[in-house]
Design a protein around this nucleic acid. Structure first.
Lengths: 353, 353
DNA sequence: ATGAAAGCGCTAACAA
DNA sequence: TTGTTAGCGCTTTCAT
């Protein structure tokens, strides 16, 4: 006879076990000890449940208990080293707490963000990590109305705790590393605009980029005085766009600038795509850094300093906020690391050690 | 006065709107048209719901309708280019169907896989994509018992449809590309074992690796006759391990082999970590290929052929199986691409052009 | 040590 | 065109 297609419920088990539904419930949810169910009964129920292929219906439990056992995280995209590391940490932390992680990307689209948060609220998630939100205020309002505990990550929000990368510090480190490697300003060879550092990529409207841009300008100003507007080219995250912008910049300058701060890994992908079309001597006089890390990018034909953000640190602190019941709009900053190039320097850079 | 902390229900709305709960339900679920609720009533209800910050409780709806609106996907890890691309596609396809995606990684751990599938079944997901399962048979049994529609992706399972990369074809392409670039066998310089190609990384026990290993052996045999056992070093996915194994191999051979097929991106990371410790002339006589793609790895100091798997194609076909109601254990193969190096060849490789 | 019964928030017959 | 009612599967008092 074919197995009943319907999933068994506690009532099926209760009938088979000759016990009441509540006894079955307790035996199966682990609460049988405190309900003073005899170990024999509990064990028997568990066995029958197992052999019937019974699975607790977590929707029903959630409905009854008014807690779903789900934790949510929204973030811009999955296919990105930084964010996917966060997913990995998020899961680990969720599991530790016996919660089921629900991670959804929102493609940096405010409307999609709102729709997604609404969906997650509707599934009664118990708390929410909001990573890199483009419109935190709208989300804030929704979470607040739903009484949903939430923490902002990577980009701060108002009205709830935020855990963010110390972008200022990271960008300062990276800018200094670039300046240190830049050919001395006075050699006259690449004079004028080419002697100044440029920042390429990212979106000036987002908080993280804005912080980095400020730090970049501040550090560069220590050496060169205030940088012209044109030295910051926040052209977004698309590789193709960054590639085009860099080509255009080279055209204007008559070559690569002496320093280049690339503001995201995807923009860097575009940069590299352009650089490899040039003869090696073309980028010999350029110091390059990238905000964000990729193990292979650290091994390119030319040395690249990279900033590695601490994804796990961010997530760990975010969960700590939730656990601690923090409600205030505190902002925690987590320091990123500067990663030196692992490339073997050949040619013009080898004397720079 | 502070907003009521409790979330409003249809009963709250119904009271405020002077309509019954079922009218509210229909007005809010979009079914009001066919329930012949006047547009005026529906609109009014919707307005009140909006201003009350009402969100449908999807747990309750799911319980009642016996469908949760969730689709699940399990996969080995998030922080991997291939898998995170799948997440991105999976979400897009889920959204198109009005479902909420739940993506969980299981760390290539059979026990974790089982626990996760159990959890997802308990949340009453409507279907499940099983990516790269280490123990498909156990999962098969669970899904079957729960009457859960599922499709295997990347690694085939028995008892349900599978959509997998054409590993044989991909590995053949890659092996041929490597052989074509290998220094001619007869030059005597790197004679004996060093003149043969090696495969490094991956797990011989998993289906994909096994396929690739077979293809590698078959193609190599066309030129060199059957390869010794030792030429396949399936040492897993950890970069550090691959690095050590490669170092040991170089010790044994007195240098790098003439051809190297690296069986995963993570193993390749280890390989690169070792290679850059060598002087450039050390790897001048080696042809390198990697199964899996990374945009930066394609730009390294030495040319690397890479196989790019079609993540979106896999997911699209998997959803097509679900949509089509396919139940049989058919196996669909999706072809990957061979990506030529974009590096500018300098030195020993430049004449190979 | 266990059972009976109410109800979580929603939907779907069935009535009206 | 709308309201009433009976559950979906589970947990949890309150009895016993």
């Amino acid at each position: 006879m074919p197995k009943p297609r319907q999933k068994p419920t506690i009532y099926d088990i209760s009938r088979l076990a000759g016990a009441s539904a509540s006894t079955v419930s307790a035996s199966l949810s682990g609460a049988w000890r405190e309900r003073r169910i005899s170990e024999a009964t509990a064990r028997k129920v568990q066995e029958i449940a197992a052999e019937q292929g019974y699975f607790t219906n977590l929707q029903a439990r959630g409905l009854r208990r008014a807690r779903s056992g789900l934790v949510g995280m929204i973030m811009p995209v999955h296919d990105n080293r930084f964010f996917s590391s966060m997913s990995q940490s998020f899961e680990a932390h969720a599991r530790m707490r016996g919660l089921c992680p629900v991670i959804v990307s929102t493609l940096r689209d405010p409307a999609e963000e709102r729709r997604t948060v609404e969906t997650l609220i509707s599934y009664a998630i118990e708390s929410l990590l909001i990573v890199g939100a483009t419109d935190p205020d709208a989300l804030e309002q929704m979470c607040r109305a739903a009484g949903l505990r939430h923490v902002y990550v990577d980009l701060p929000g108002r009205g709830a705790p935020s855990v963010i990368s110390d972008n200022r510090h990271g960008a300062e480190m990276l800018t200094r590393a670039i300046l240190d490697r830049m050919p001395a300003g006075g050699d006259g060879e690449a004079g004028g605009a080419r002697a100044l550092p440029y920042l390429l990529g990212g979106d000036a409207g987002d908080y993280a980029s804005a912080q980095r841009i400020n730090a970049f300008r501040a550090v560069a100003a220590e050496r060169f005085g205030p940088l012209p507007e044109a030295n910051v080219i926040a052209c977004g995250y698309a590789p193709a766009r960054a590639s085009r912008e860099l080509a255009a910049l080279c055209d204007r300058l008559g070559g690569l600038p002496a320093g280049l701060f690339v503001n995201s890994l995807t923009a860097f992908e575009g940069v590299v795509g352009h650089l490899v079309t040039l003869p090696p001597e073309a980028f010999a006089g350029t110091a390059i850094g990238c905000y964000d890390y990729d193990p292979f990018a650290a091994f390119l034909q030319f040395p690249v300093h990279m900033v590695r953000q601490n994804a796990d640190g961010l997530i760990a602190r975010a969960f700590a906020m939730l656990d601690g019941g923090e409600e205030a709009a505190v902002v925690i900053e987590v320091a990123p690391d500067l990663v030196a190039p692992r490339t073997i320097y050949k040619g013009p850079f080898s004397e720079l050690g």
